[in-house]
Amino acid sequence: MSTHDRTLFAGVDIGGTTTQVVVCDADLTVLDRAETTTPAASGGQAMIDAALGVLAPLLRRTPGRLAGVGVGAAGLVDSAAGRILVASDSFRGWSGFPVSAAVEDVLGVPVFLDNDVNAFLLGEVWGGAVRGEPDVLGIALGTGVGGALWTGGRLFAGPHGAAGEIGHVPGFGDVPCTCGGRGHLETLASGRSIGARYAERTGRLLTAREVADATAHGDEDALAVYRDAGAGLARGIVIAAGLLDITTVVIGGGVARAWHLLEPAVRARLAEEPPVSGHPVRLFRTRLAADAVPVGAASRARLETTGGEAAVAA
């Protein structure tokens, strides 16, 4: 087949800080990729325009026919309607925004919306760290903390679309959360909260990545913030394991780049307080890294447009 005749699928990850875009072939091999800053404070249309702005040159230089687009977006989504239902205060004008329709109007191909962490987990199960696993909890540590469930060989969103949202489990103190609640896991283990907790200790405003860099110089406050994040993450995993009896966990997101700082605290706490089932937690770090969400979103578009079997390789 000529490259001009091949079928293409695009995957988009609209995160709180960065938007990632990939173009894949029918086997979901990434042919090209790009990223841009998410204009989260400028409203839904600005975020879609930014994503399309980086997708357009990828399509121009990648021969083939675009058959569908998958979008993984932060927040609670209505996949069937292609609309954002609830978003954190990191975003302006995002709740209620018709994502699928906005992208379809420009590209003229079917567009499928999913929660970004669902897409992340689908990508990792399709061809990443937990390929072929039947039951997995996915956790994304980014600007916020998101969760998703894969069970019985398929994504489980729950009756209200919020299954697996481990980041908004309470019981982790009393700090206000971005969702309006208090003491959620996100207030310990997200990139935003790591920076905020370090600032409370030191008066210095750093990003989560800068806090991680500070640990290399023996900064005890930076180390303590990451220890607390890891311990909180482990407690959330144990809670999920007790409720769901799922003990395979894949962790991704920007904060997971500092896994060497999180992992010791996570494993120490899990050793002290294992799941009630007695089965040890199997922890995996993302294999697809930044490609996980957009590739997972593209795989959803491939599945929906081809009507084939689930895009999961056993």
Score class of each variant (00 low, 15 high):
V54I: 06
F112H: 13
V30H: 03
A241C: 15
D25M: 06
T248E: 14
R83T: 09
R227W: 10
R269Q: 07
R201A: 15
D228V: 12
V295T: 12
G296Q: 13
D213Y: 10
G252K: 00
I194M: 11
V175M: 11
P110Y: 06
C24N: 03
E210I: 00
L58N: 04
V276I: 05
V312A: 07
I194K: 13
E272L: 02
A10L: 13
T306P: 02
G15P: 08
D291L: 00
G236F: 11
H279V: 06
G218D: 10
G142Y: 07
L141P: 00
I246A: 08
E133F: 04
A196I: 12
S42I: 03
T306R: 08
T7L: 15
P274S: 02
G195C: 09
A81N: 06
I166H: 11
V86D: 10
L206V: 09
T37L: 14
T19F: 05
L243M: 15
L155V: 13
G254T: 00
L59W: 09
G53E: 03
V77Y: 09
T38G: 09
T37H: 14
D78Y: 05
L59S: 04
W126D: 08
G181T: 11
E165G: 10
P110A: 05
G75P: 01
Q45H: 04
L262G: 06
T3C: 01
A34Q: 05
D174C: 13
C24I: 01
L283R: 07
F156P: 10
G153L: 04
T215W: 07
S88L: 01
V23N: 01
R269P: 05
A140V: 01
A214W: 11
T215V: 14
V77A: 04
E133Y: 04
V249N: 08
G158Q: 13
R33N: 03
V54F: 00
L113Q: 09
G64C: 02
N118K: 07
V117A: 02
E165Y: 07
W126H: 01
A51L: 02
T17P: 02
Y198G: 07
P110F: 04
V136Q: 10
A231N: 09
G171S: 08
T247K: 13
G132R: 02
V54Y: 06
H168D: 08
A313N: 06
G161S: 15
L137G: 09
A313I: 12
A256Q: 00
R65F: 07
H260K: 05
G15N: 15
T215A: 05
D228M: 14
L76N: 06
G173P: 11
L303G: 08
A298Q: 13
R235G: 09
V211T: 11
E133P: 01
R6V: 09
V54D: 04
I239H: 11
V77L: 01
G203S: 08
A140S: 15
V21A: 12
A240L: 15
E304S: 12
L52V: 00
A101M: 08
F284Y: 04
V169F: 14
V23E: 07
G132W: 03
A73S: 15
A189Y: 06
L107G: 02
L122S: 05
E309T: 04
D135Y: 04
D221T: 13
G232C: 14
G147T: 02
G82F: 01
R285V: 03
T187D: 06
V117M: 00
G44W: 03
G153A: 03
D27W: 03
D25Y: 05
P294F: 14
P275W: 01
D49P: 03
A258E: 00
V281I: 06
F156Q: 11
